[in-house]
């Protein structure tokens, strides 16, 4: 070996050096080495248990013995369409839709103000004002609403002070949205869902509005559009990917939640509660698995549609 060659490619010394050299020469082997641990974890453990669960939805339960019959059948899926179960599906999906629409409506002004008008100190206030509720404990937030909506709580106290008790009572008399008190009504459940998932909507909407140049809004005004028209024809279309991105969270999280309706709401079940009940005391894993297929399917379609709308760029 000549001296020159030794300078151009000095040989690494020691086992670490040799290993390093051989990895450099075989990038495919290095790639394999990098990917194996995460793929083992996510691909084998996580996807494995997911598919095992889905497979169990094709089993059925013997009504007499309560044992699981491991022959593939669609019987369990037919059970999903029994009126009682269908009600659960419709209830959950419409709640998710309502929460998503309301979250978009409440989030938009906050996101728009933060994106366009807030500067300096106010920018920081808005940033922290959204991040702190987003990251504070989910259960604490639910607990706070239990305090607010309690019969002896602050909301009823406030309504009483304003002499509006009659209005609240009239509202609670209404079918479907009413109930004995706010904390056992769909309205209560809805408010808590809206509160807990709202930051997940604000952030992507704000991200999409940040990208709208101020000159575009001014141009719209210069061309004679009223503020309402600018909102309708310029801002909303540009914010739509952000709204769709946020709705992925609000929709998916509402579909799968079983704690909020259990703590604040009427005793009528949501998908999550049905899954929990069927896998727990009832021991009917096949039906529980079939129930979980519904949100998976809905979210699959939703994600596909969202991707086509370009919502992932707003994340």
């Amino acid at each position: 070996m000549t001296v020159q060659a030794a300078i151009v490619s000095p040989k690494r010394v020691g086992p670490a050096g040799e290993l390093s050299d051989s990895l450099w020469r075989n990038p495919r082997f290095l790639l394999l080495l990098l990917l194996t641990p995460p793929l083992l974890w996510l691909g084998v453990i996580y996807l494995g248990s997911l598919f095992a669960l889905l497979a169990q939805s094709f089993f059925s339960i013997d009504e007499f013995s309560g044992l699981i019959n491991r022959e593939p059948t669609l019987k369990t899926y037919r059970e999903l369409f029994v009126p009682a179960n269908l009600d659960i599906l419709i209830r959950t999906v419409s709640m998710a839709a309502m929460v998503t629409i309301a979250a978009a409506a409440v989030a938009f002004p906050v996101a728009y103000f933060a994106a366009r008008y807030a500067t300096g100190r106010w920018k920081a206030v808005f940033y922290l004002g959204i991040m702190l509720p987003l990251w504070s404990s989910y259960l604490v937030k639910v607990y706070a609403w239990k305090l607010i909506l309690a019969k002896e709580g602050i909301l009823n106290w406030l309504v009483g002070k304003l002499h509006l008790t009659w209005l609240l009572d009239a509202y609670l008399q209404a079918p479907l949205i009413g109930g004995n008190s706010l904390s056992v009504s769909y309205t209560g459940t809805f408010l808590v869902f809206l509160y807990v998932w709202l930051p997940f909507m604000i952030l992507p909407v704000q991200a999409s509005l940040e990208r709208v140049p101020a000159s575009l809004i001014e141009a719209s005004g210069d061309l004679g559009a009223a503020p309402g028209q600018t909102l309708r024809h310029v801002l909303l279309p540009l914010a739509l990917p952000g709204i769709v991105a946020g709705s992925i969270f609000t929709f998916s999280l509402t579909l799968g939640d079983y704690i909020i309706p259990q703590i604040i709401g009427s005793s009528r079940l949501f998908i999550g509660q049905a899954v929990y009940a069927h896998q727990g005391t009832a021991g009917n894993i096949p039906l529980a698995a079939a129930f979980t297929v519904v949100p998976v399917l809905i979210m699959g379609i939703y994600l596909y549609a969202a991707k086509r709308l370009g919502a992932f760029d707003a994340l």
Binding site: P38, Y46, A52, L253, G256, Y258, V275, T292, M299
Partner: peptide
Amino acid sequence: FFGREAISLLVILPIALPGIITGIALRSA
């Protein structure tokens, strides 16, 4: 590499799917 997109999807899946699905899948496993 082949399957690169699939890996980013796989990583996101545990939070994109409702938590109850991850939970019950692991429990039954």
